[in-house]
Design a protein around this nucleic acid. Structure first.
Lengths: 340, 340
DNA sequence: TTGAAAGCGGTACCAT
DNA sequence: ATGGTACCGCTTTCAA
């Protein structure tokens, strides 16, 4: 019902020229007033007239026009994750956005679902973001980085398991997670260790380095690791569990707590004693792992705060020559509970 | 190593004028070629020269300039969820983005963490999105909707538990979830029913309608419902469980499966038999619920596909007068397992 | 204290 | 088949 009165106003979007006309001033004055330009003094009555006019018309500045004129944006583009991220990442994302906003950036997530790496980079570049912070979901190639930088991006930062040429890469060392888990299992006397590799697309960026870390931890210790594919559904888990005894494993590191609980349940249903016959450890320290019996051992991950990364983004934007390092991006430590 | 050769090119971002100069043609011709404008015929040799020049310079069109000229964008803005959404929503979001991209929209998530409802709407309006699809995280007010529409948004669609004046609201009727759950419990002979209300901010938009549905289902059936606050951590759960017997309840509907499993574990640790002494039901049908013992009863939710919503967005964008209804946005049905 | 005007990077009409 | 040019909305000198 409240739509009809606005119908006339919906005809066309008010511009600063409309505001100027209504206030009886020039467009320049409108700009000065609405941006509180300090280098110019505008009388109080004029300011009021301008503000009232803007209010009355429901004037909202046009970001595209503004940034076109300015020659740059304050947009930080975060390629949106195309896979289900856990609460850990979610929290980090949240903090990052909040901190960036405090630094007066416009934070935008740009999904790139149907696009390949370089197509995505080009699509992002069209928006002329001042910075791009990629969490490694889409394959950002050296060429993609180059496209972004040539389009004016001051900072291209990847938080990926592996380094990307040309970008300011912060390696989020997932190998530490795998090596923590396997070291823990070895210390508890296990030698034949399965490592669950999720089949879900997108997760390979995480699972492969985690496996690599597991492999390295086992090397030279007398233990060996063996990759095991698993989809995140009950059927896949029970299939794996059904053939479990034939694998001859005495322990399993199951990528993360979600997969670990799924597999542990299937193993228990198969009559396999946890941790007696097989030790199980997950990762990410999800609440979930504490709800099952036996309680799930896990690898707790301390992630850098979003605030820290936001500050780094800001530094690189202000001085692209500056290449600050952010170490200890991720700490990992095994948490022993009852399943190992 | 690949940065140094580009250093000169990084000085300034190439424009269509640069491409024109290099190709020895006018800017108009560049535009025609790169956009495959069908109303104009350009010779093949010219086309090639233009394309090669664009390639060589690493030219990427400036989205802001384009939309400024065009007078409109193809941007669909999805306010990013400020709270942890479950896999259900995640999947829906994913589908929606994918489908919108197929329809040639640019999908952008805009976080609004530090902003109130109307501030957020204004910030969104600056980007001049052609459509806004809000999932109800931020309080989109009638005024906010108005701002967006006045700024040129053809479609403002809310997928919220409650209707928003002026917007094209698709009510995602969360009450059905609550009433399903409670009806199920009543049918199984329970009368004193607790309803868990998560303390986590943002979830009240979902939990309150779910509670309302629960209340309505109980009304006139001889049963009664009672809200119970719970935070998503073990301590809160065990506190609630410790006083459980004093509450005199014989069943609980625990918002969703996450909260349900958390509470169920705490109740079991307190020695309370599930479902003998207390029946438990969750919602959302998460895999998690099938991993615990007893298996968790739940309310399965069928959500409309993202594709369907994308088509609706497209329809409203093409004809804002059209106000198509999308019914049965969410179907809910109780799934009986072992905990009730 | 305020206004006129140039120009950011594209697009599309109208000439040639 | 191609080029000249006006214009989209806003900011920012420079002049008055």
């Amino acid at each position: 019902m409240s739509q009809t009165p606005k119908q006339s106003a919906e005809r066309s979007v008010p511009t600063s020229a409309d505001v100027a006309r209504l206030a009886g001033v020039s467009r320049a004055t409108v700009s000065y007033v609405l941006n509180n330009t300090s280098s110019v003094r505008i009388s109080e009555p004029t300011r009021r007239r301008v503000r009232e006019a803007a209010e009355e018309l429901g004037y909202v500045p046009h970001a595209a026009a503004r940034s076109l004129r300015a020659g740059h944006t304050r947009m930080v583009l975060l390629p949106a994750a195309s896979f289900a991220v856990g609460p850990l990442f979610h929290r980090f994302f949240h903090e990052l956005q909040w901190a960036l906003r405090r630094l007066d950036y416009t934070v935008v997530q740009y999904g790139s679902l149907g696009l390949g790496g370089d197509e995505a980079a080009r699509a992002w570049a069209e928006l002329r973001p001042v910075a791009v912070v990629s969490l490694g979901e889409v394959g950002l190639t050296p060429h993609g980085v180059d496209v972004l930088k040539r389009s004016g991006a001051k900072a291209v930062i990847t938080l990926a398991p592996r380094r990307v040429e040309g970008a300011h890469s912060l390696v989020m060392d997932q190998t530490g997670v795998g090596s923590c888990a396997v070291t823990h299992l070895i210390q508890r006397g296990r030698r034949a260790i399965g490592v669950v590799m999720p089949r879900e697309p997108g997760l390979e960026h995480f699972s492969e380095p985690r496996f690599e870390g597991a492999r390295r931890a086992a090397a030279g210790s007398g233990a060996h690791v063996e990759p095991l594919e698993l989809s995140y559904d009950e059927e896949s888990a029970s299939t794996l569990a059904a053939g479990w005894r034939g694998l001859g494993l005495d322990a399993v590191y199951a990528y993360n707590d979600d997969y670990a609980t799924l597999l542990m349940r299937a193993l228990q249903d198969e009559g396999i004693d946890i941790p007696g016959e097989t030790a199980v450890i997950g990762a990410d320290d999800l609440l979930l792992g504490r709800l099952l019996r036996p309680r799930l051992s896990t690898v707790h991950i301390d992630m850098v705060t979003g605030r820290l990364l936001a500050e780094l983004v800001d530094r690189v934007v202000r001085d692209p020559e500056d290449r600050p390092e952010l170490h200890d991006l991720m700490g990992a430590r095994a948490v022993h509970r009852e399943s190992s």
